[in-house]
Amino acid sequence: MNELLLTCRIAGRRAAIPALCVQSVIEVGEVTPILGTPDFIRGLTALRSQALTVIDCSLALGLKPGPIAADQRAAVVAIDGHPYALLVDEAYDVDEAISGPIEVPGGFGAEWQRAARGLVETTSGPTLLINIESLVAGPAPMAA
């Protein structure tokens, strides 16, 4: 159960994305905004001949972004055949999970809980494992 994880900072907290899903980590260049979309969709950016949909992970969780690293990076993933760039506050490194994801009593807080796969122990401490599908779906609707 030594899953490789990309550790990063989202909304000021340590989080991890399964490294298997991540095709590459890029520095996002120019982003073309898409009008009419929710805030968490920052726009499109081009990677070679692909147009990536740029998702701001913090906003997608319904949270405010923390301090942004000077070289803000994004993880390139493909979900249902669509390529996305998941923009994080800061990308750290690829780390190894020591334990499988576990639930904690009381949850991680409403916003985090929705996207959480559980807590994983890594060599650099406990980290929240993020379910990337729920990032792409965006924050829970305000009403209802």
């Binding site: 898409i34 009008l35 979309t37 969709i41 499109l44 081009a46 949909t53």
Partner: peptide
């Protein structure tokens, strides 16, 4: 034309995305 992410599709404004000849995306 390449398909776009479902969340963008939901806006009902765009049918797809494409790249301009300078490499920038265009809706």
């Amino acid at each position: 034309v390449k398909p776009i992410a479902p969340a963008v599709m939901e806006t009902g404004l765009y049918a797809g995305t494409t790249l301009l000849d300078d490499g920038r995306p265009m809706m």
